[in-house]
């Protein structure tokens, strides 16, 4: 099996999920220049809601095709998440729009803690296993395997990105959104209701988050009330990598981050195996004998990559790959 190609496929799959979540961060940032700290929790709630619905439908025992059942889960998760996204905007952001920047950040953190613990109350402390109803057939391509779930995730996110791009560039609301992102006051003078646009942006971001949540759930087969935290962090890193506030950047950043993470986790063990280092392996001759390994950093450091990428981008190119300057305060 070709490990390199396999890691690329896995990376593209997780990367397309990151891209969808990163779009949520970047859209909100575009219109209000603030990070929506609770976005990761919205994704988590999406996964959990879909989980409940899928379990209920499976429990009914209707002869429905598995893809339809998952679709029902998605359709249930989207309105729930949209409602949460709207609530977030109304409770945590709108009343503090003219407050010092610290204030909305703190309320968003508070909301995210509340969402996490409400989820804990509803779904419990233990990880919930997603029912594996999608039959996981693998297709061989060039020495690697791609599963039907991976194909579904990648194609779904491509469709979503295309739809979002159309929405933002071709519809009235999309134009209003871009105008607000450009300049709220002037957009107001042109007759655009900023409140409506901002609320709408939160709602769309949350809807995308819901779909991403279901993707993560079906891909890893598990959902947990703390899953939103690290996923949100990674997606945010992806958004910064691409250039925050920039839609194409979020898509690119998500895919790149997925690739970096998959390849990194796949190869870091080999690179940091001290037995492969010329001088050091001599000193460790006992432990390296008979093909032994002394691996400094194994794949359990996978979660560190996103953070390393975030720091490196902030040091060397804070505006991201496709973004404009962000270093000054608005």
């Amino acid at each position: 099996m070709d490990i390199f190609l396999q890691q690329i496929i896995n990376g593209l799959t997780t990367g397309s999920v990151y891209a969808i979540v990163a779009l949520g961060y970047t859209m909100v940032y575009g219109v209000i220049q603030l990070i929506n700290f609770a976005h990761g929790e919205v994704v988590m709630i999406g996964a959990m809601t879909a989980f409940t619905v899928i379990m209920a439908v499976v429990g009914l025992g209707l002869p429905l095709p598995p893809a339809l059942i998952v679709l029902l889960g998605v359709l249930a998760a989207i309105p729930v998440c949209m409602a949460i996204g709207y609530t977030l905007e109304r409770v945590a952001y709108r009343p503090l729009r003219h407050a010092p920047r610290l204030a909305p950040l703190i309320t968003a953190i508070g909301m995210s803690i509340i969402l996490q613990h409400v989820a804990l109350l509803i779904w419990g402390r233990d990880p919930r296993a997603f029912p594996q109803i999608m039959e996981n057939t693998s297709f061989a391509i060039g020495g690697a395997a791609i599963s039907s779930v991976q194909i579904a995730i990648i194609s779904m996110s491509v469709i979503l990105m295309a739809a979002l791009t159309w929405f933002v560039y071709r519809t009235r609301f999309g134009i209003a959104m871009r105008a607000t992102a450009e300049n709220v006051h002037v957009a107001g003078l042109m007759g655009i209701d900023a409140n409506r646009v901002i609320a709408g942006t939160f709602i769309i971001a949350a809807g995308l988050g819901a779909v991403a949540g279901v993707m993560v759930g079906t891909y890893y087969g598990i959902a947990h009330y703390t899953m939103g935290f690290i996923l949100g962090l990674k997606a945010f890193s992806a958004a910064v990598l691409g250039g925050i506030g920039n839609l194409a950047g979020a898509m690119l950043g998500g895919l790149l981050l997925g690739l970096v993470e998959a390849l990194g986790a796949g190869y870091i063990g080999d690179f940091t195996d001290l037995c492969r280092w010329p001088v050091v392996s001599g000193m460790l001759s006992e432990r390296c004998a008979d093909g032994g390994h002394v691996v400094l950093f194994g794949s359990n450091y996978q979660d560190v990559f996103a953070f390393a990428v975030l720091i490196l981008v902030l040091v060397f190119r804070p505006s991201g790959l496709l973004g404009e300057r962000v270093s000054e305060r608005a």
Binding site: L34, I35, F37, R101, L102, L105, F229, I230, L233, F236, S237, V240, L274, R287, V294, V295, L296, G298, N300, Y301, D303, V304, A306, F307, L310, I311, L314, P318, V326, S327, R329, A330
Partner: peptide, 27 residues
């Protein structure tokens, strides 16, 4: 950079320190 970056970087740093504490037991 802007203040919100610091918030999210420190958030990540807290998590990374925990990952290191959990995994620096081998080799």
């Amino acid at each position: 950079l802007r203040g919100d970056y610091l918030a999210i970087v420190t958030l990540g740093f807290g998590e990374i320190v925990r990952i290191f504490m959990n995994n620096l037991s081998s080799p």
